[in-house]
Design a protein around this nucleic acid. Structure first.
Lengths: 105, 105
DNA sequence: ATCGTTTATCGTAAATATACGATTAAATAA
DNA sequence: TTATTTAATCGTATATTTACGATAAACGAT
């Protein structure tokens, strides 16, 4: 694209779009589910559960961290990742609000 | 990317990621709100409410149509767009399900 | 001090997304 | 018929995303 016009929209729309972007790849959705369901928090463990390389999984984790859906705590040489309940809740409310508003059911 | 690995994930994850992708640009969120709030359905009317060109808005509408969040009905030379309540509802449930599952609040 | 483990980052290639103006296609109006 | 209106598509430029292997950085173990 020539230039990004994202900054011409308002806070709320940008936040929601940003959260949606973070959820816009199946690997990242899977990662959230893995962090919830399996008793797993390390990048290496996630790599073993996905058909992707370590560097690619690390990139996906970075994207999830970027918007705050996931946090990483350093534990020696490892990093323990977990979902950030506050931001998950915030995302849940934001999507529900938009989609309820938009749907006249 | 060398190759897409999206097909290595399951239906549910792909659907959700696809819906998220459609919502991952502020302009498309705004378009959903415009179709709901303003008494407007034509592409041209939407263009006037956004800082984007007609061709760009048409592309965004195409993306929303692709996942079924929006429908377009041809009315002579115009096309009347509207949100597809069924898919909006489906999206609402899908996001709520994922984010409720993932959040242990 | 060296070696293994773990994760992040770099470099790179290819796909996709975003934006625009120009053009096309289809319907209506003159 | 010709002109106008409306939306889609084409062509193009640039940015971003996705993916990988290689490397670096940081820590723990030997």
């Amino acid at each position: 694209m020539a230039i990004s016009k994202v900054e011409l929209f308002n806070e709320n729309e940008i936040l929601l779009a940003d959260l949606a972007k973070a959820l816009s790849h199946p690997a990242r959705i899977k990662i959230l589910q893995i962090l919830t369901d399996m008793n797993v928090c390390m990048c290496g463990d996630i790599v073993e559960l996905l058909p992707l390389s370590q560097s690619t999984v690390s990139q996906h984790l970075k994207e999830l961290k970027r918007v705050g859906l996931v946090q990483g705590e350093i534990e020696g040489q490892k990093v323990c990742y977990c979902v950030n309940n506050k931001m998950i809740e915030k995302a849940k409310e934001a999507f529900a609000k938009l989609l309820s508003h938009v749907c006249k059911c």
